[in-house]
């Protein structure tokens, strides 16, 4: 296929992916909006006022960046894993597998779908947060950069999950048992300075800590960790995930019999 034909195929997948999550907005866009609004009300407004300051900011200001990032991560991941697994489950992934488009086209089509949902939900959550606090973005480049890279990384990870998933339980295992706990423990709700030395060190092994802090640095200008390290780490994980996705597609593992 010519580059132009690959481009058309790519746009076809992206369009289809975006239309899919918009069509089922009650399952894709509404839940994070409700959950995050509840977080804002409970942690920010009700409990937050008693907690006082965290890292030099009101508690509300402190938690908002982490909650936005958490929404981006889970939605980018969930979109790709459920869409691609659905295609596998109903077998219409075969429409793509028999077509002449390249494996890169297929992969980036799905990844961009995940990124689109991650960013859209991130935007919705950001807008909702404005009812509770003000946001003055300190470093726009860092903010946008980390959101984009993170949503790409988790979309790729969602794709790997979809290839291996055998049933709908396998689709929700990672978001529920891995992503959410790691994000909660990754400094969304507290600064790791508050933790005893040992637990602070353990927290530094959690990749989510770097992502959440890099984003918080972009928005508030403060971070518990080095932001350069965060970008490097997300970059390395993204490359690894990309390499693994291409390995799966090129060998046809679990996709072609």
């Amino acid at each position: 296929m010519t580059t132009r034909e690959q481009w058309i195929a790519f746009i076809t997948i992206v369009r289809k992916e975006i239309r899919r999550f918009l069509r089922i907005w009650m399952q894709t866009l509404l839940p994070p909006a409700i959950t995050m609004s509840l977080y804002f009300i409970i942690f920010g407004a009700l409990i937050g006022s008693r907690i006082g300051e965290m890292g030099g900011f009101t508690y509300m200001e402190f938690v908002v960046p982490g909650l936005i990032m958490m929404s981006v991560i889970t939605n980018a991941y969930s979109n790709v894993v459920s869409s691609f697994f659905g295609a596998k489950f109903q077998r219409f992934v075969e429409e793509i597998l028999v077509s002449p488009m390249s494996n890169n086209t297929v992969l980036w089509g799905y990844v961009l779908g995940g990124v689109a949902r991650g960013l859209l939900v991130g935007l919705i959550v950001t807008l909702l947060s404005l009812f509770f606090t003000r946001l003055h973005i300190q470093h726009i480049g860092v903010t946008v950069g980390i959101v984009l890279m993170t949503s790409i990384m988790f979309s790729l990870a969602g794709f790997i999950n979809a290839v291996y998933a055998n049933n709908f339980d396998d689709v929700s295992i990672v978001p529920v048992f891995v992503l959410t706990p790691l994000t909660y423990l990754g400094g969304v709700f507290y600064s790791i300075d508050l933790l005893p030395e040992f637990w602070a060190d353990v927290s530094r092994l959690n990749p989510m800590l770097y992502i959440v802090n890099a984003f918080r640095y972009g928005v508030l200008g403060v971070s518990d960790v080095n932001v350069g390290t965060a970008f490097l780490m997300v970059g390395v994980f993204t490359l690894l995930a990309y390499g693994y996705c291409m390995y799966l597609l090129n060998t046809g593992k679990r996709l072609r019999q």
Partner: peptide, 25 residues
């Protein structure tokens, strides 16, 4: 065996397939 998306319309299924082969919209 049937292998198309249950939720998509007939039109979308056929038009998307053309897209996968690089045909202009």
């Amino acid at each position: 065996e049937f292998n198309f998306s249950n939720f998509e319309s007939v039109w979308d299924i056929v038009v998307n397939q053309a897209g996968y082969y690089g045909l202009t919209r």
